[in-house]
Write a protein that binds this DNA or RNA. Structure first.
Lengths: 113, 113
DNA sequence: GATACTATTTAGTTTGGCTAACTAGTCAGG
DNA sequence: CCTGACTAGTTAGCCAAACTAAATAGTATC
């Protein structure tokens, strides 16, 4: 499915949510996203986002050698990151309600026919 | 609220949904969106979108003189437009479910603490 | 004739996810 | 030993869509 546009801003929230569950490195996070259905997310999308979030202070990272490949970079949420996540959840809920209201209106219209 | 990024792709769906209720002109549609909470949508956002949708064949339009201002351009959904709307609703529902799944996971985590 | 509201259009900017390419480490098969 | 496959991360440049700001123009009010 092509959901590029819908992802705008939402991907960041999802990344924060998954990292909130515990430290995780980029590649693993990517696979987790795929598992949730966000199959289109590639390294070129995810890594720059992680770098941005770390730069902004929402994430902290540490490098750990891997027994089966290149060094992994584990990310954790900072206090700021948790705040961002909460803010996102609030905003997303409100936004979803707005969209639902618009769609409901047309559903009413449809059922009236 | 700053929801610029979340609106990506969704605005189009909302516009289709509102027009589905019956012919409406741009300015009125803009006010309708404001009424649903999308207060940031300005003419410079909406009109180009309407033009694009008409060009793509999702909307048809006709100009009608207004008794209290410049000529209005009323838009209606074409068959294509209805199809687009249905496709959007399906996609939006699936997307919403995916995001909910990610957020739920972290809620579980939170409540376990 | 100045302000305000209605109604639409256009130019140019910004944001953030996308593709594509590259580097680099480990391991299996031939 | 070399090739390919999987793991792991980085970078440059593209593109779609919403944004700001400004302009045009009609009507009404003061």
């Amino acid at each position: 499915m092509k959901q590029t546009q819908l992802l705008r801003g939402v991907l960041e929230g999802c990344v924060l949510a998954i990292i909130a569950k515990g430290p995780i490195y980029g590649y693993e996070l990517m696979q987790a996203l795929h598992g949730y259905g966000f199959t289109s997310i590639a390294g070129g999308t995810l890594y720059p986002l992680l770098a941005k979030l770390e730069h902004q202070g929402a994430l902290s990272s540490r490098s750990v050698a891997s027994p089966e490949g290149p060094t992994r970079k584990y990310f954790s949420l900072t206090t700021q990151g948790f705040e961002n996540l909460t803010a996102f959840q609030t905003q997303w809920a409100a936004f979803g309600a707005q969209v639902a209201a618009v769609m409901e209106a047309i559903d009413d219209e449809k059922s009236r026919r």
